[in-house]
Amino acid sequence: MNLAEGVQFVSLVILGGLMIFSALGVVLLSNIVYSAFLLALTFISVSGLYILLNAGFVAAAQVLVYVGAVNVLILFGIMLVNKVEVFSEVKNAWVGKAATGAVCAGLFGLIGTMVTSHPWAISTAPAAGDKAIEVIGQHFFSDFLLPFELASILLLVALVGAIVLARREFLPDLVAPQQEALTLPERPRELVAAGVRDED
């Protein structure tokens, strides 16, 4: 094992450990904000793994999409509906947890056996390395042209659907009688006194 391989091995161990512990934290911690940040850490360690595999483009995409978009969205979601609620303790909650743990351990054992026992066929195509973006682009415009174009329709309809779900609708029956200046016609809300904000 030369120096480069040693560095790679050490990074693999660090990244793997980071990934496993942050993923466990996502599931086990009861504070949802910690879970969300640990999820970001998991995504980042996965992207580090991609870099070790010489897949720079996938690593960048992973950070952009998962950390930059998905995780920020989750944090926004938490921020907007952050309602503190005290849940009463469920009796015998450990039964459910133990069952879940057993199922997960079983699945892990099964998939682990499969991964170690199977002689995996390695693709014969030469490694793309730094030319990955070119190779991906060529695939997009040759054999993956159809799914690539279909994805644009998918994105369009997701956009339309998001707007449909998020836009305000004018509700004639809900126009409030106490409507005042600067309130929105469809959602009357309490006006905050001007002085309150300054004290914050």
């Binding site: 054999d143 799914p147 279909l150 998918l154 309809v157």
Partner: peptide, 18 residues
């Protein structure tokens, strides 16, 4: 082909959720 299967499946599913 797998990618087409998945993208078209998601097109159907996401539209159905909406």
């Amino acid at each position: 082909e797998l990618v087409t299967v998945f993208v078209s499946l998601e097109t159907l599913s996401i539209s159905s959720y909406l």
